[in-house]
Design a protein around this nucleic acid. Structure first.
Lengths: 239, 239
DNA sequence: TTAATAGTGTCTCTGAGACACTATGTG
DNA sequence: CACATAGTGTCTCAGAGACACTATTAA
């Protein structure tokens, strides 16, 4: 091993943080919601030079002593006053060359919000996967019925979010984040169908949902529907 | 919405990267391997002040225009001359306060290496999960039969790697990364058992392995074993 | 021949898709 | 009553655990 001395020196050198040029830290948030049976993502229109005019994911730089989660919460609050949103880290993009001055490290988060997020700054785009199951890949997004192109690689990031969400749907109770405190099994099924992008058998869905035992019947029925009202359920282990 | 002007201003301000203090970018690598049926992780002994003397994950700062993957590859090469290693991003830790001078953003990677990684700088620690299935949580690590405490939150990061690996084992051909080009079904099963931490039924394992159709029989048998030799297989879609 | 492992046959259980059915609310 | 949806019964099939069995090789 002739490179032992070299690697030793490199190792020690690498542990001096001030030697390396600093980078900027940012978060981008994929906010997903189900609106009338459609999976939607929140988008902002870029008002500055790189990719100006394109739709992009909401995001921002991480401030001072803020944690990543705090930065995500702040971005959500600033853009639409949304508080206490489920958010989960997905992937970190750190390729050099995004910004000519400093390297920008961007941590992508997946957030789920009941009914989607919409505000003066934020529009909802409908997500259409070009792939089935959990293959993964980019997605196409429509705003007001017309296909739009997302800035940077944000279409791939939305695709990553959708892939992650489909995976989590199987073995974690994540769909409840997209519903209110009380919901019917049909509403829960609609959320699943919107995320999976395919119809789901009613009976199979009921069986597996009720068997998982984190659904609690409220003993009350939904109201103001022009057909037979269904039992209301809630999720047992919200914390 | 009285906060519209505020959020607008914050939005614009946030897009000036030079305004925010820079951070240092580092990678930590969980190198896992299976050595004689045991799941092992590569560790280095810290030689500098914070947590000096504790075992820690190998890692280092990202240099100049290096990508994260290049930094991981460099760390692997420096520590043990390992090239072309499977590596996958896991999670990014960015809590302030790790280093008093600058904020250190550390991106944790999972790497898989045949036979584990060992060198003058690196020791192998045996990983023992204190949890079953895919619950997740920290792990305990033994070096030379004695339990050791890992530096920082590295025990949790190893636990995260194990959880991720167990999950991927179900639906991706990741176990092949821990074997040579040619292997018997028993060797493949041993890798699975080491990762899952439990015995696996031989017949079920064979059936599902052969059904997945990315195993190709070589038409040759293993040699130099003091019992009936088994068919050698290789993985079909290495790229 | 014996020992040890390679490799197979088959029963069972479970979870999910398919689909027809009954029940019960609104109008 | 009609109608639309809530909710159920049941057949089937695929995948996996359990386990006993046969096959083949080294010594």
């Amino acid at each position: 091993m002739t490179n032992k001395k070299d690697s030793e020196a490199a190792f020690l050198a690498a542990y001096d943080p001030s030697q390396w040029p600093g980078v900027s830290l940012a978060v981008d948030v994929v906010v997903l919601g189900v609106v009338s049976g459609k999976l939607c993502v929140s988008l902002v229109k870029r008002t500055e030079m790189p990719q100006e005019g394109f739709f992009a994911l909401p995001g921002g730089f991480v401030r001072g002593a803020e944690s990543l989660e705090e930065a995500v919460a702040r971005v959500m609050a600033e853009k639409a006053g949304a508080e206490n949103v489920y958010a989960e880290q997905m992937y970190t993009f750190a390729d050099a060359g995004r910004d000519p001055r400093t390297r920008v490290v961007s941590v992508a988060y997946l957030a789920l919000l009941r009914g989607g997020l919409e505000s003066p700054d934020v529009v909802l785009g409908q997500v259409k996967a070009t792939w089935a199951g959990e293959e993964g890949g980019g997605v196409s997004v429509e705003v007001g019925g017309a296909a739009v192109e997302l800035a940077f690689d944000h279409a791939d990031i939305v695709g990553l979010a959708l892939k992650r969400l489909r995976g989590k749907l199987r073995y974690t109770p994540v769909a409840y984040e997209l519903l209110g405190e009380e919901f019917t099994l049909r509403q829960l099924q609609e959320v699943h169908e919107a995320i999976l992008g395919r119809p789901v058998d009613k009976n199979s869905f009921r069986r597996s949902s009720l068997a998982s035992a984190d659904l609690v019947p409220m003993g009350r029925l939904e109201e103001d529907v022009p057909w037979r009202p269904a039992e209301l359920y809630t999720y047992a282990e919200r914390e």
